[in-house]
Every structure is written in C-alpha cells, then in structure tokens.
Design a protein around this nucleic acid. Structure first.
Length: 488
RNA sequence: GGUACUUUGGCCGAGAGGUUAGGCACCGGUCUGCAAAACCGCAUACGGCGGUUCGAAUCCGCCAAGUACCUCCA
C-alpha cells in the first residue's frame, strides 16, 4: 500500500488522498440498477468505473467489501402519474408478478455485466429484502425529530434538518433556492414544504407492492434503501459511496440527510460520481428514449449502430475516457476503440512470443510506475492505456527484430501487462468455443502450410487462391519472413 | 429562472504556466512476388475578446455555444 491513491471527492469538489477508515478494510457502496428494463450503455459506465476501483483497491492490498444494490421496489414513475411504481407499471403492462419483472431484469443485468467482465460485488442486496431495516431507519429519523407523519406517510423535514445540519452540502444547492425553483407537484398537500421527501408512502388501493409498517401499508421512500442497506453492511460510517452524476441530487443529497438525521453523523467519507454517456451530445437515458441496450450493442441490432460491438470493445471504449468526463457515443468512436483494443491485445499476445536478448535497446522500466501513478491519480485509465500503447510500440519493434529486450525486462513487461491489461483494466480476449477454435486453427494452419509450399515452388496461382479464398471466408492472412500468421 | 460543468488537431480523448499524450482515419515511406500487418514520417490543436506573466491552451475577467441537475433516471 505504498501507492497514494487520490480520488475526487464530490463532497469537497477536489481530489483527496484516500485514507480508509479501518485499513486494511475498505467499504464501498454503489447505486445499482432499478430492474425494470434492459441494461443499456448508461448502466455500463458506473459498473465499469467502480469495477476498476474495486480491482485497484484490491491490488493495493485492501480487503474490500463492495456493496451494490438492486432496486426492485421501484420508484415513483413521476408525480403526475398517480405515484405508480415503475416495476409495478411494467408488471401490469406485461401481466406479470412484480417480482417476476425484477428477477428477469436482474438476470439480464447480471448477464450483461458478466459479458463486460465486471466482477460481481461482495454483496448485492435487494431493496425488497430490507423492508424491516428501512422501517427501522424511518423510526430512527422520527425519534431524532427530523420527520413527521402525515396521513399514513412519513416525510423528511428538510427545513428542520437544514437548521441543525446542512441540506445541500453535496449538490451545492440551498434550501431557499429549492423552495423557489421546485415546481408544485401533485399530492404535495401532505407535505409541509415542497422540498420534503417521502421516507414512507402509504399505498393507494391499486398499489400491488406493499408492506406493513407502523404508519400504513405502503412502501419505502425513494432514497431510503441506500441509507438502510449501506449502513447495514458497511457500518454507520464507511469509506466510499459511488453512483452516476445524475443521482447527485436529489438522491444522494437525501441519503446524506437521512443518514445524518438517523445516526447523528455522516456516513460517507468519499462520494464519487461517474459522468454520463451522451449520444449526439445529449445524455443517454431511459427517460429520453435515446438509449441503446447492451444487448443491442452486442448484436448490432439498433438503427444507430452500423455494426455489432463486442463487450470488450464497449468496456475499452468506456475506459478510454476518464470516468468524470462525459463520453459521446458514435460508431466512429466505437470503431476506433475496436481497432485500438485489437492493437493492444495483439501486442499483448506478441509479448508472450518475444525472444529475449542480452540487453534491452530501450528502457521500459518506468512503465509499471507510470501506470500506477495514472491509476492513483483518480483512476486515470486513459493515461494507463496510453502508456500501454507506448509499450506495444516497443513490443512490435522487438517482434520485428528492430529492437531487443533482455530476459529480465521481458518478464517485467509481461508482468506489467498481465497486471494492468487483465487484472486491473479487466480486458480479455474473447474466445468462446475454445475447442472448436482449436480444431479450426489446425485446419487453417494445414492449409497455410500448403500455401507455403506452393510459394516455395513459386506457384502463385495456388498460393493466391488459398489466400484469396480464405480472405473471402473472413480470414485475414499475413505473411511473415519464414511463415505466416492468420486470424478471423 | 437557479446551480454546476464543458468547449482541445478530420474523429475520439488525455494533459497542463515554457518540453511528443495516446488511439482511430488520411497521406508518404520501409518491408513484401502482391496484399495485409508491423515500423518510420506527417497534424504544430487547445471557443472568442481582454488581462496577469519573461512566457498561457493551461491563471483571472467578460462574452459565446453546449450539457447536466433542479421530476424517475447510471
């Protein structure tokens, strides 16, 4: 743990040295998906961003407990929509049990995450499985005097809270502005102030998802699950809380208020937020209807996609931008990533085949350090990738016999690549159907041996025929000095 | 309207008060029977206008354009 990891803390709007509360243990909580729809590119961003953090913290030697929730209770659709749950609405439309919806989309989410090589979190709690904890949390806030009951619902008293603590410290908003700018919404008569938010909502008769509570049969408020579940599994105080920037306000602001009100202290030390993925400069989002699901990416089946993209291409595309920048989707950018990734992975493969010399013609010793420094600088994966590409250049030179590498340097290079490419960036070669592929390889090798022989006999007609036919079938043939290389 | 952020070469995307980011594309070259790959070379960019400074794309001010949040959203 010699490396000093700096991460950008949204709470203070600056990079801060990461010092865990109880080293070597680190607790991190990340807002997971609401499972009422197929995962899209926007879901991939936080999952990958915090996957990188998870991997890197472990690399630094920490024992990390990573909690990422599944929201299956649903949130209110919108206030004009009679307060119906998203999941519930979907259930009604598809004539399914709400939990069936949640299960279905959880599975889809997991499948997509696995394809993206996102490691599963240590704990993945469901909101529906933590209703008692959430009720307890509401009780605590009521006891502390920062909530009030109104017609079976419980609301958080933002104004009262703000007098003692500071509502808006994360998002930089202040309560007066909010009172001015928050538009009047339906069903607000129960609340004292428009800025107050629900901790517990009484269910209307048509509401299917409902639980018993001291106040009414109903369901927990929008922000409560994260407060209840994060503190349950990580303690009243924990290190890192992450999520998308769009959750900054009101979700995370409300979370801070709830936890502070209930526990008398702040729970989270470092707040981290990943930026959005945009499409034509606009946020890609469910509500905007301009999102592309991950499955559509993998199949290419979407009007905006000119081809299918492999999961690793999507991962690499996301890692080529810093997590706090927006990244704009386009086929051109994806294709550039696809080729770049291919170059990187090919370099990685060639690295395994290099033959060492007595000395190295170029000094690559700083590579590990430079990559570590980039990671420590708020997880600057684009810089790590740039460094790796410089090494690829060197690898190719050695491969071409235009440079040399010593045995010791070669081992170091291999080790650094394995560490950064595979373990930390989580990039891997996509080779399903490995056995079939092996057989195919032998067949193609055989064919190319024949071609080699034809070439020795200067039988260009035969050699070109083999190459052209294979090329037409989708193979890429490359001649080398004394043999050949190929790929599909 | 309020708050915050962004603006980099053909595209994506880092960085940062004075030194080549990187990837993709284009073009030229090396290599090769041809091709592909690889390698070499090639862009001298930083929204506009002022200011600070020996020096700014990097700091400050103003302006412009755009985005996000203020309603569920990753």
């Amino acid at each position: 743990m010699d490396n000093k990891l700096y991460i950008y803390n949204t709470l203070h709007r600056k990079k801060e040295l990461f010092v865990p509360l109880h080293a070597p243990h680190v607790g991190m909580y990340v807002c997971g998906p609401t499972v009422y729809g197929d995962p899209h590119l926007g879901h991939a961003r936080p999952a990958i961003t915090f996957d990188i953090l998870f991997r890197y913290l472990k690399h630094l030697g920490y024992k990390v407990r990573y909690v990422r929730n599944i929201t299956d209770v649903g949130h209110l659709e919108n206030d004009a929509d009679s307060g119906e749950d998203k999941i519930e609405k979907k259930a009604r439309l598809e004539q399914l049990e709400p939990m069936e919806i949640a299960q279905y989309y959880s599975n889809r989410y997991h499948k997509a995450m696995e394809a993206l090589n996102v490691l599963p979190p240590s704990i993945e709690p469901h909101a529906s499985g933590h209703i008692p904890e959430q009720i307890e949390f509401v009780k605590k806030i009521l006891e502390a005097g920062f909530a009030y009951e109104s017609e079976g619902s419980v609301y958080f008293d933002v104004e009262k809270y703000d007098k003692k603590y500071h509502y808006g410290k994360l998002s930089g908003r202040n309560i007066d502005e909010l009172l001015e700018t928050t538009r009047m919404l339906e069903g607000q008569e129960e609340k004292r102030r428009s800025v107050d938010f629900a901790l517990w909502k009484k269910a209307s008769p048509e509401h299917i998802m409902r639980w018993k509570s001291p106040w009414s049969e109903g369901f927990p408020g929008w922000h409560l699950e994260c407060s209840a579940m994060s503190t349950k599994y990580l303690g009243e105080e924990f290190d890192i809380h992450g999520g998308g920037m769009d959750l900054l306000f009101p979700h995370h602001e409300c979370e801070i208020s709830q936890s502070t009100a209930a526990l008398g202290k702040e729970s989270v030390r470092y707040w981290m937020h990943n930026n959005m993925i945009t499409i034509n400069g606009q946020k890609m989002g469910k509500s905007l209807g301009n999102f592309i699901t991950l499955e559509e990416f993998f199949s290419g089946n979407h009007p905006l996609l000119s081809q299918a993209y492999e999961p690793m291409t999507v991962r690499f595309f996301i890692l080529q931008a810093h997590y706090r920048s927006t990244v704009d989707f386009s086929n051109e950018a994806l294709q550039a990533s696809e080729k770049g990734l291919e170059r990187l992975m090919e370099g990685y493969e060639r690295l395994q085949k290099l033959i060492p010399s007595d000395t190295s013609s170029s000094d690559m010793s700083g590579l590990r350090l430079r990559c570590e420094e980039a990671m420590c600088d708020d997880l600057n994966t684009p810089i790590v990738i740039a460094h790796l590409f410089e090494a690829v250049k060197f690898i190719n030179l050695v491969y071409d016999g235009k440079a040399t590498v010593s045995a010791a340097d070669l081992e170091e290079l291999k080790d650094v690549f394995r560490l950064f490419v595979e373990d930390l960036l989580g990039l891997k070669k996509e080779d399903e159907n490995f056995a079939k592929y092996e057989a195919l390889k032998k067949a193609v090798d055989l064919l190319l041996e024949i071609r080699l022989e034809a070439k020795r006999n200067k039988d260009w007609a035969t050699s070109d025929k083999i190459r052209d036919e294979l090329t037409a079938l989708g193979f890429e043939i490359k001649d080398t000095k004394d043999g050949f290389e190929w790929k599909i």
